[in-house]
Simulated scan of single mutants.
Amino acid sequence: MNIDEEIKKIIKKKDYDFWIFLEKAYENNVKLDIGHFILLNLLIGIYDLYKNLCDSLGEDRAKEIFNSYKIFAKNSDYISGEFLKKYINRKSRVAVHNRIKDLKSLGFKIESKSGAYGGYKLIDVPEWFKR
């Protein structure tokens, strides 16, 4: 399994109704860009990828692979802000934080942790967001 290719597939997924998403953003005065969708896809898809790797290769090997790609923050299961920022092509994790804040304002429950063990984890999606 090529992790880079799998991540590219995750980023390009379009499993949700874009128009409803756009309507909710408009109602909440959130200005969307492609980074919001990329982050959301990663927050959803990374855990699916991790589960698939655990099922096929075992948890230890899956953790080893995720550590080598620096997907999870150090010794945690939170997706690293450093990892996320490179996929939205920004130099600062603040760009990730701002988009996560926007997604939260749209009703996405996203846990955030700061520091070396921090990152982001999607906990729940709003009722209107159906894949």
Rank of each mutant, 00 (worst) to 15 (best):
Y69N: 03
D4A: 15
I3E: 05
K70E: 13
Y47R: 15
L39S: 05
N98A: 01
R61D: 11
D33T: 12
L106K: 04
G45Y: 11
E6I: 09
N52L: 10
I71K: 00
L49D: 11
D33I: 01
K13C: 13
V125E: 13
K63Y: 14
K101R: 13
K113L: 09
M1D: 13
D124N: 14
S112Q: 15
F72Q: 05
L53H: 05
K74W: 13
K121Y: 11
E82L: 05
L122H: 12
F21C: 10
I7K: 11
A62N: 03
E23N: 06
N41G: 09
I123D: 02
I11D: 02
N29H: 12
R61S: 11
I44C: 08
R131V: 14
I46W: 05
K9G: 09
N41H: 06
I7C: 08
L53S: 06
K70R: 12
D17S: 09
D77A: 02
A73F: 01
E127V: 15
F37G: 05
K8Y: 03
S56F: 08
D17E: 15
L122C: 10
E6P: 03
R131I: 15
I110W: 04
I10Y: 04
A95W: 00
D4P: 11
L53R: 03
F108M: 03
W128N: 04
A73Y: 01
L106N: 03
I20F: 05
F18H: 10
F72D: 08
L39Q: 03
K8V: 02
Y78P: 03
E6W: 03
N98H: 06
K101Y: 04
L122P: 13
A116N: 14
A73C: 05
S112V: 11
D102V: 01
R99I: 09
L53F: 09
